[in-house]
Amino acid sequence: MTQTIDTKTVKHVAALARLGITDEEAEKFSGQFSAIIEYFNMLNEVDTDNVPPASDIANAENILREDDVQPSMNREEFFKNAPKTERGYVKVPTVLGDE
């Protein structure tokens, strides 16, 4: 599988990742991405037909927490880092559309 990553694709993944991007940047990344993806394609050489994916690397044990309420953090502490707050809420600009 050989593919180049054109600027349209770069802009698409930038949008997926909510990264603002200029045309020049898209141009630059397009060339770099194509080279990197080309390099990654070497994985196609490996026969993985009967190989399970290794999603959990180590501790395959159940780790569960008892359903006990722990003290929460102080709201004012939380708000120290928040760019905008109002009446106990975190404030953001207008939200359009659904999730």
């Binding site: 003290p71 939380f78 106990g88």
Partner: peptide, 28 residues
């Protein structure tokens, strides 16, 4: 449940005294 899915904050948000009081590093 008493607490949230992945942290120890109270899950009883409907009876929270104020907004953003049942919060911690995990759920924010």
């Amino acid at each position: 449940t008493n607490s949230k899915m992945f942290c120890g904050c109270s899950a009883a948000y409907a009876s929270a005294p104020e907004p953003n009081t049942y919060i911690c590093p995990v759920c924010t």
